[in-house]
């Protein structure tokens, strides 16, 4: 049996959240999702595909030259495109967590005026009129006419397989013969102590929404855009740190260019506002107490989270 396209939970991962019972992964569905991922047909003028802002070599994040996503007509988006990995394990998506199921994620990018600026109905029409897609949907789902839920299911089959669990760190914690250097181990202990309250668990996030002091004012209100509650202004999702060394720039507004800047921010750059996370304000001092050496050691550990097998995995490459 071909297990190339079988979803398997890594031993050190939590249970997935995706509804596999409604949409089991098949080779045909996965390949169809991959083709859609690379197809600019999704955008209004045929100029933007998902892969424009989600590049495999960068752990499916956008390039440093694009701190904000570039959509149709070269319009700039409002946030830094997040990396894509381990999506089958997440409860909420995007920096503000407004989308609660992986199936609905592509719709957001397709219909956003600054991204693909196309209607879901038009995409479905284009697919139905395409010389090849109808046959591919027939193979994957047994349908004669393409409808949006099947398109979204194909996307999800591709995305749930984007599992990044083979970093040096993973092979170390799973006792697969990998060892961490003394510096990396020191960094890991410091990371757990200084960063682990929010970046917890094997996905290195508690998936909560927090204001990390990146700014004092928030034209992009973040989580409050979804909850419409003033206590959520300036809060953004705590991101997973897997492949973090590949996904610069950092934060929703791409303000920090390097990991050194990120650590320096937490050590001495945290800015106060009414919704600042309590963990970054103990009443006496803002931020997290860390020496320069400790910051460097934490970065050394974070580099062990890069999964080189994931960013080179041929299954995720455009093979048309």
């Amino acid at each position: 049996m071909d297990i190339t396209y079988r979803f398997e939970k890594p031993a050190n991962f939590p249970e997935p959240t995706y509804t596999f019972e409604n949409n089991p992964v098949t080779p045909e569905g996965f390949r169809l999702g991959r083709r859609l991922f690379f197809d600019p047909l999704l955008s209004r003028d045929g100029s933007v595909s998902c892969s424009n802002c989600h590049q495999q070599g960068l752990a499916f994040a956008d390039g440093p030259q694009h701190p904000f996503s570039v959509g149709v007509d070269n319009q700039l988006g409002i946030r830094n495109a997040p990396p894509l990995a381990n999506l089958a394990f997440k409860r909420e998506f995007f920096w503000d967590g407004g989308v609660t199921h992986l199936d609905f994620v592509p719709t957001n990018a397709i219909e956003n005026e600054l991204e693909m600026d196309e209607s879901l109905a038009n995409v479905v029409d284009k697919l139905n009129q395409h010389p090849e897609y109808p046959a591919l949907f027939k193979q994957a789902f047994g349908v004669d006419t393409i409808t949006s839920p099947y398109m979204l299911h194909a996307f999800s089959q591709f995305m749930v397989m984007m599992i990044s669990a083979n970093s040096k760190y993973d092979k170390y914690v799973r006792n697969e013969g990998e060892t961490l250097t003394d510096e990396e181990l020191k960094g890991m202990r410091l990371f757990e102590e200084k960063c682990g309250a929010c970046h917890s668990g094997e996905l290195f996030s508690d998936f909560s929404f927090r204001n990390n002091g990146i700014s004092t004012t928030f034209s992009d209100e973040g989580r409050a855009r979804i909850t419409e509650h003033p206590s959520d202004i300036g809060k953004f999702r705590v991101p997973s740190l897997r492949n973090i060394a590949r996904t610069a720039p950092y934060m929703h507004n791409a303000r920090l260019k390097t990991l050194e800047e990120v650590l320096a921010h937490y050590a001495s750059g945290v800015q106060e506002s009414s919704t600042l996370d309590p963990l970054l304000n103990d009443g006496a001092q803002l931020g997290i107490l860390m020496t320069d050496e400790e910051q460097a050691q934490i970065i050394t550990f974070l580099e062990t989270l890069t999964d080189y097998e994931f960013i080179a995995d041929e299954r995720f490459q455009n093979t048309q």
């Binding site: 509804t19 409604n22 949409n23 199921h101 992986l102 199936d103 609905f104 719709t107 209607s119 879901l120 109905a121 995409v123 479905v124 409808t147 949006s148 839920p149 099947y150 979204l152 299911h153 999800s156």
Partner: peptide
Amino acid sequence: EGAAGGILDPA
């Protein structure tokens, strides 16, 4: 339950 069809299909 994720993406659904018919009267629940935005397209």
